[in-house]
Nucleic acid binder design. Structure first.
Lengths: 224, 224
DNA sequence: ATTGAAAGAATGTCTGACAATCGGGTTGAC
DNA sequence: GTCAACCCGATTGTCAGACATTCTTTCAAT
């Protein structure tokens, strides 16, 4: 039998959505220089879509805060300041610690297995030199935690925050040293969750986010 | 002299932005039935703008989660379920408690005065029968707190969350009883902040959000 | 060097059009 | 009468093209 709450609707992918996804991915991977302007006509050509469709996609990204749009000057990649990055990491800490704590209390054995697997995958990526794999496997790890915290809103907000600092994350994750520290910290989180020890899980999670913030800031221009 | 960090840029208001603001306001005030579809051609006529501009505005609202857009079926007002409302209030609690706690530690005397004034304004609204005034004055109160928590990201996320449950808030705030309880709870928060007592402020804030959630849920269909 | 004007580039906005899709109602078969 | 298939109007997805407005840059003049 089929669980009735399962959503079976297949969402047709529109041109506009494809454009949002592709642009998001491009921004993540640092195709555009922070602070640089995005020219509509260029993007239309590169994406092979019309200007109205592109502009709809840009409005979506602007609402996600992945690009800035200034009237009469058009869209640009935000150049995050030291203060903004700090604020984002602080918010991420608040949400992620809470999610990890909740997750420790309620995760199923099945999902725990999946979490362990994703940790192994990250370990493999950390040992290799595949920077992209490190990012994606780490994202899987968080994703499982956030999906099991019992609150989809926390998950949604967390995803948005991590997206906005993805550039700094990929920079620091490209350093093998940082990847290995991350691995240790994430294993600590996993152990605490597996033991259903909420307090330890929160503590490990807080430590992890703070270290990630410190690592990210090393790749930033100093705050004057 | 002029403080150099002050942003003097005047943002020209575009048709698209006007549309977003007007639609947001309309959604807040319950002009559209939850679950009802929004027909593009209708909205174009009512707003007096073209379809491309409207569609850009709709994409913005969709990214804010104020409307749903299903491909080939267009935009509609989300009909929030019991679970979603719970999740939003839980997230709001997490953020608001943190913001209130931080605010208690760092607010300036000047801003404290402003906070007191906004509390008085809410008191007047609570005693009157002006439901709209209750919402706006209460929003001012939170806004001052969130603006003084030292983290603009928390402010931004909180605003988004409150927007999504504005319908339920306006329903419960239209009840004089709920407005008077809110007043008591908010006064408690204010007193704790004025005393720079972070712990008491957090406690009062948590109580306030939990009571608001309970009040909101009374105006909802039961969770099956 | 500062100011001012002019040219070029890019955005904001609209009109109009057409194909694809969805929802509902009608028809027809059993 | 029930159920299925079918068809049609309504609505959305997408594009092309156009034009006024605004920004940026260049260049000349004071």
């Amino acid at each position: 039998m089929m669980p009735p709450e399962l959503n079976l609707r297949v969402l047709p992918r529109t041109v506009q959505q494809e454009a949002v996804d592709k642009l998001r991915l491009a921004i993540f991977s640092g195709v555009f220089e922070p602070g640089s302007r995005l020219i509509e006509s260029n993007l239309c050509l590169r994406l092979g879509i019309s200007r109205p469709s592109l502009r709809e996609a840009l409005r979506s990204l602007a609402a996600e805060r992945l690009i800035d749009i200034v009237p009469n000057r058009g869209p640009s990649i935000p150049a995050l300041t030291w203060e903004e990055v700090t604020a984002i990491y602080e918010a991420r800490e608040l949400l992620e610690v809470e999610a990890v704590g909740r997750c420790a209390e309620r995760i199923s054995n099945e999902q725990l297995d999946a979490l362990e697997k994703s940790l192994s995958a990250f370990e493999a990526a950390a040992l290799s030199n595949d920077g992209l794999a490190r990012i994606t496997t780490a994202a899987d790890f968080y994703s499982i935690i956030l999906a099991n915290c019992g609150n989809p809103i926390l998950e949604e907000i967390h995803r948005g925050l991590v997206a906005r600092i993805s550039l700094f994350r990929s920079r620091s994750m490209s350093l093998k040293g940082r990847a290995m520290s991350s691995l240790t910290e994430m294993r600590e989180i996993y152990e605490a969750i597996a033991a259903h020890d909420e307090k330890a899980a929160r503590k490990a999670s807080r430590k992890h986010v703070l270290k990630a913030m410190a690592a990210a800031k090393k790749s930033m221009p100093p705050p004057d």
